[in-house]
Every structure is written in structure tokens, then in C-alpha cells.
Design a protein around this nucleic acid. Structure first.
Ligand code: FES
Ligand code: FES
Lengths: 133, 133
DNA sequence: CTAAATGATACCATGTTAGTATCATTTTGT
DNA sequence: ACAAAATGATACTAACATGGTATCATTTAG
């Protein structure tokens, strides 16, 4: 049972590293050295972060990535969502169809409660906070 | 992002159904009819539950399955653990090796806290409670 | 002895995760 | 103009996990 996959994890680490450089443009080679993440994979992850507007990218010599928002406004649940889709702890299906029990299922109710909690907890963690740690 | 997979879900539903039969032995055909779960898959799930001691099985004509514990003592986190391994929200690895940051990583600390909460919440739900719902 | 059940096990199909490879495009410095 | 250094886009592959099947062996009630 896991919740956070590799690309999300890498993304968070990269964002933290970039954030610490406050305003400087950071290129992939530097990130690879610092974080020991496989280069092509890291590139893919960064492209994802760029598309979703977490970072801004600059091409050409001297190019690289910069945060597009203040670190305190980058919520890790959104980063996770970018790579893993929305949080949905229990997708109960009955042979590809949505489960007919859904309305009454008591387990679902409790899991939904858990999901809300998890989501609000994860929703309160920002890159900015991680840096302080 | 999901946390509960199909076999766990099926297991829980089967346990609930068996629990409601209080002491009677329930065979696969009856479960298949009631729960609309593919038969061979359900068999595999039940065999898992038997091995882990959640249910007792009886072979031969008139055989089937019975709860091996009181419904109030079957915790769904244990059921989930049977099929999905222990709860481990974030397994941060660096190229197959455990991450060297682990000791200081602030994100890990927060996720660990979340994990404890989740685990204690899930750990408080039993089959017995689900039946009341 | 047979029918009806589970036990054990091997297998298969699909989807997800993790990672690679390639080529196109942009930008800067000379 | 041009080469080098960066990202963009995209397609591909390998390994693993999930969901599900199939088969045969074993037990047991009648
Ligand atoms: S059994 Fe389907 S939602 Fe709970
Ligand atoms: S970066 Fe590895 S445990 Fe957080």
C-alpha cells in the first residue's frame, strides 16, 4: 500500500532544490548531480511541472527552471495530483460498473471521511514548509 | 491514487456476508450469487483469508467458510494488509537504495504522521462495525 | 464411491510505474 | 551565421502489480 509514487517524490525534491536557489535558474544537469535522479526521467517530471505551471522553463544556454509561484503556495497534494491523478482512496467497482452499494455502504462512508482528512492534511503542506524543516 | 484494491474490497464484502450468517457455513456458490464476484477470484481471496486465520474452511459436501473470530475482532486494516502488504504511504527510494535523506527529510516526517493517523483510523474499523452501518 | 466442496499452484491479460531514446526547437555567445 | 546548451514533444521499453482463469489434487458427507 503506497500513496506517493516515484515521479511525485522526485518532483517534490526537485521543487525544493529549485526553491532554495531563490530566483536563480536551475538546469537539469545541476539537479541530476544534486538529487541523483535518472536524467531522462527527471526531465519528464520537470516537463510535467512546467505544463501545470509550477515552474517556468527557459530554453537555450543558461536556461533551466525557476519556480513560477512562491514556495508557500505550492501544495504537495497538487503536485501529487499532477502525476497520480486526484486522491481517491477507495474506488469500489463491481465488474467495471460503479458499485450499487455505494449509497448505503458504511465502509465507503468511513473511507470517505478518511480521504477528506488526508486530503486536507496533504493540502496543508507546501514546498515552503518543507524547506523550513 | 488509491489505497484499497479489489481483492481487499472483495474480502471485506465476503467477510461481512459470512458474518451475517452467524455460525453457519457459507460456500462459494452462495457467495458468488450474493456478491457477484468472479468465482475463481473469490476462491483465491477466500483461500488467503483462510491462511491468515480470518476464516475457517471446511471441505467436502456442505463445506464452506465460517468466521474464525468474532466480527468485532476482525480489523479491516489487517485484511488489507493480507492482500496489499503493510501500510507504507511513502517509500522513498533513491535508485533501489533506501534514501539517504530519510533521517532529516521533513516531508517524510509529516507523511509518517499521516500514516500513523491513517493506520490508527483504519485499525479501528472492524467487520462488526460495518455490519451495524 | 461419488459428488461437492476447498487447497495448491500455475498461468494469463491488462494496466501502471519507472525509465530510455530520439528528434525538434529555442536561446545565447562568439 | 553557427555551434553549443538547454528544454519540448513524443514514442518506446522493461518490470511489476493487479485482476482474473484454469487445472488438478485433496477432503468429506452421504
Ligand atoms: S461495497 Fe461498493 S461502495 Fe462499499
Ligand atoms: S527525500 Fe528520501 S525520505 Fe524524503
Amino acid at each position: 500500500m503506497k500513496l506517493i509514487t516515484r515521479n511525485t517524490d522526485y518532483a517534490i525534491r526537485a521543487l525544493c532544490f529549485i526553491a532554495r536557489k531563490e530566483g536563480k535558474v536551475v538546469a537539469v544537469p545541476e539537479l541530476v548531480k544534486a538529487l541523483a535522479i535518472p536524467r531522462p526521467f527527471l526531465r519528464k517530471v520537470l516537463q510535467g511541472l512546467t505544463k501545470k505551471g509550477f515552474v517556468r522553463s527557459y530554453k537555450g544556454i543558461g536556461g533551466g527552471f525557476m519556480l513560477a509561484k512562491a514556495p508557500g503556495r505550492i501544495y504537495i497534494i497538487d503536485v501529487a495530483g499532477t502525476f497520480q491523478g486526484p486522491l481517491r482512496l477507495n474506488e469500489c467497482f463491481l465488474k467495471k460498473e460503479p458499485c450499487p452499494n455505494r449509497k448505503v455502504c458504511c465502509l465507503k462512508k468511513r473511507i470517505d471521511r478518511l480521504e477528506k482528512y488526508l486530503s486536507s492534511e496533504l493540502g496543508s503542506i507546501t514546498i515552503g514548509e518543507l524547506l523550513k524543516g
